[in-house]
Design a binder for these strands. Sequence first.
DNA 1: TTGAAAGCGCTAACAG
DNA 2: CTGTTAGCGCTTTCAA
Lengths: 345, 345
Amino acid sequence: MGTSTGQPTIVSIAERAGVSIASVSRVLNGVGARRDTVLKVERAAAELGYVPNAVARSLKGGRTRQLTFAMPDIGNPVYVAMVRAIQTVAKAAGYRLLLHSTDAVVDDELAVLRSLGDRTSDGLILCPIRITDAHIEALRTAAGPVVVIGSLPDGVPVDSVRADSVAGAALAVRHLHDTGRRRIAFVNGPADTVPGRNRDEGYRAALADCGLVYDPDLVVHTDFGIESGAEAADRLLAEGRPDAVFCANDQLALGAARALHARGLRIPEDVAVAGMDDSMLAQAGWPPLTSVDLGSTERGRRAAELLLNRLDPAEPVTETATPRSTTAPPRLVVRASTGRAAPDS
Amino acid sequence: MGTSTGQPTIVSIAERAGVSIASVSRVLNGVGARRDTVLKVERAAAELGYVPNAVARSLKGGRTRQLTFAMPDIGNPVYVAMVRAIQTVAKAAGYRLLLHSTDAVVDDELAVLRSLGDRTSDGLILCPIRITDAHIEALRTAAGPVVVIGSLPDGVPVDSVRADSVAGAALAVRHLHDTGRRRIAFVNGPADTVPGRNRDEGYRAALADCGLVYDPDLVVHTDFGIESGAEAADRLLAEGRPDAVFCANDQLALGAARALHARGLRIPEDVAVAGMDDSMLAQAGWPPLTSVDLGSTERGRRAAELLLNRLDPAEPVTETATPRSTTAPPRLVVRASTGRAAPDS
DNA sequence: TTGAAAGCGCTAACAG
DNA sequence: CTGTTAGCGCTTTCAA
């Protein structure tokens, strides 16, 4: 029965070409071989429709040429931007991208970290929603290179890429002040997350900077999402009489805009609205949303580059290697939602 | 010097536990073993922090427990919805998800199909932008199970999941007619794609159904994207005086809405706007967009299920197996952008 | 119940 | 330049 069923392997090629499997391997990898050997092997491979088995290669070589990206929720435009950037860099370097949605479940994030040990991928980019002691421990003992998108405490030997949401929030608040707003409300995300705390810090700092006082009636913490933004804005409108609403992300801002529209308030004449992330959503609404770009794309790109760099044989991961950390600068993108206030206001 | 460096393997465990690697494997796989053997092995494994090497397992078992999803552009909310659904199903079944952005490049799609032969993943979900003869050929000779999200010609032995954009477009047009519109413009995507043709078909059929005549001045073909939608709407407004604009996806609709706002036209009082896909964008704008849900999530889910079913050892892929095809029913989601026309119009 | 050994498909060291 | 062979880490006969 000659050749057995199934996919062709180097053995089938060797048989067909009448050479050894070693020669097949050499030809296929472009290592030296006699002209007619090359020809025979190439012909046999083509006739058989041979495709090298990547799994066998990985086992032998110890590398899968796969990268893993784990983030809380692929439904969030911010993570989509990251995926896109990472995929682009990975593809260019000949790596495949493995996607993991953790649904913001801590145990899931830890499981992903541990699963680095199964050698399924050569490295991991992790975007945790929160960093617990368990995270730190898992990061210390990770079985392979990891890059974290987010803020890590000092002393954790892991590369990271950060957003500067303190500065970002400040950019937005100052811009609102510059365009004449004095009662700047703030719809923030959960208070117990790193980004939440940072944005709050930026908001307060910028207020002080502009000579405005912090008014608790003008601040709401909620979870992310359009509905939450609408509810939060409703509450603020009733209590605080703001002339601007600054939101911790674009979804919240879109929700706030909806609430304003529903009340017949004009944006930006009556109330200005600004968001954060400058996701694709910022341009979706009406009026287009002023937003602070925290560099999602840039962070994804840099994270992928850092990781690939660690995978580069020239720069092996050593316990003693100093962790590298870069911060993507925020950028204010001004659109119609924060035009000048109406003169009579 | 005793145990060598690197990750622990079954060999290190065997040494430590004082048993053979076969016993280690058995214990780790829950196959019968004496009580104290089990204990010894489990202790050694725990102490060493052993994680099974998935690559070696794959080589032995011939399955990677990975699925590949290839689509044109992860930036498009429709594909994000699919990724999300696929990831959920895959995760539940113990499969990882490999993501491939083809950037709508045909050669890239074909390369992905061919790469099925490298055994990197057990199956492929492909969402092609267009189906060429080369696609058909590659699908016929695919080295593993494939599910196509899109419309395949008869006779191609591949499972597929389709959207019914003909019926979907008709739903929207009839709804616009029902709410009193009579000059219903249509901003469609490229004419040379299957979805483009289908939507056009649905539009024409529904017009006829409603007793309206097809007016070329009310139809524009463009590519997808917010800007394109705005430009198209501008052109239509100048030439056709429509009282409704139906768009082939939500991005176009958002663009159209922007153009209307910019001209001071009210939505829906002066002009109604409807989109397609019912993506997250539909709820982002103001007013919230009426949109036809073509079942992106549903299609992703079904595609993943079909694929997993083919991977199930009980139902092996046979050349003679009849390809299965399901169609996700469209659903009209009515929101404020298509409220009744102003009585005086 | 256990151990020895074969083998998944490939690469690379070593002889010839 | 070419063939033989060992081995990547694991599962799975086959004997003992």
